[in-house]
Simulated scan of single mutants.
Amino acid sequence: MSNITVLGLGAMGSRMAARLIAAGHKVTVWNRTGRAAQPLVDLGATLAASPRDASQGAEFVIAMLRDDEVSRFVWLDPECGALAGMSPDTVAIESSTLTSGWIQMLGAQMQHQRVSLLEAPVSGSRLQADTGQLTYLIGGDAQVLERCRPVLGALGSGIHHTGALGHGALTKLATNALLGIQVTGLAEIIGMLKRSGADASHVLAAMAGTSVWAPVATYLANTMLAENFAPQFPVELIEKDFGYVLNEAGISRDAPTIAAAHGVFQQAMAQGQGAENMTSVVRLFTARHAPGEADS
């Protein structure tokens, strides 16, 4: 069993740490607010006071953080950053959803200190994290990946090596963009059906029997119809990811569909839905009109 550090104990990081503890690994954790660590400490984890302290003596350091800015602080802060506590034998595993440019910069910083970086963002949400069914979208050296496979295998059921550092970020951002486009498309369709007086559940069930229906669409449609917006993938996080995607695209006219979907999530944010599940954007289209009422 390995000595593993987990940095960031949000909805995903806390579940990953719990899986590693259950698999028998020695786990050290750090979170900006220590209160989130208590359930893991109760399971046997050690709580560290800083990322630097947490990474000392670790074989693998996994980060699951909000964005580029937080990732930069947690890894590279000169006083308490994790890199300052890592030895050349340690492998850094960055599982946050970040930009490819930042991942490449982080990899260069780590190479200067002879620390290996594996880029390992995941596809999947809280259920997949709980059950060890995450899908990894790997960027980095193939030999480093082979060293990490036993750790990643405790957390995920699929490992896809996409290429060099930065390619994993591009793959994750592309995946989330396609997901978000499907969310906004279904939300608009449900709004159209309800305004037309159709039974949206019956229409969508018929659509589900056609070749255009994506596997994730059943989950998306069901949560929209049930108005179950308990956060699995909050609006505020997918909105952040869309911003990253558009930065990668360069200019909006090269990604007009992505830009339009981003606008839907921005509108939901403006209406106070940031902490709700991404499917809550359906409210933008179902609360607008009564059945049969059209724009004037």
Rank of each mutant, 00 (worst) to 15 (best):
F285Q: 02
N277I: 01
I251N: 13
F265A: 05
I251D: 14
G243W: 10
V281D: 03
S280G: 03
I258K: 03
V282N: 02
Y244G: 07
N277V: 01
A275D: 11
F285P: 01
R253W: 10
D254I: 02
M278Y: 03
N247M: 11
L246T: 04
T279E: 10
R283C: 01
V245Y: 14
G272K: 10
F285V: 00
T279Y: 00
E276P: 01
Y244V: 09
A270L: 12
L284D: 01
F285W: 12
V281K: 06
I251C: 09
F265V: 06
A261W: 13
F285D: 00
M269Q: 11
N247W: 01
V282Y: 03
L246G: 04
S252E: 15
S252M: 08
G274I: 06
A268K: 09
A261L: 10
G263V: 05
T257G: 07
R253P: 00
N247T: 13
A259S: 15
R253L: 12
A260D: 09
A270G: 14
H262S: 15
T279V: 11
S252K: 13
E248W: 05
Y244M: 15
G274K: 08
Q271N: 15
A259N: 14
G272L: 06
D254E: 11
S252R: 14
V245H: 02
P256F: 08
F265K: 08
Q271K: 15
T279R: 07
V264H: 13
V245Q: 06
A260R: 14
M278F: 08
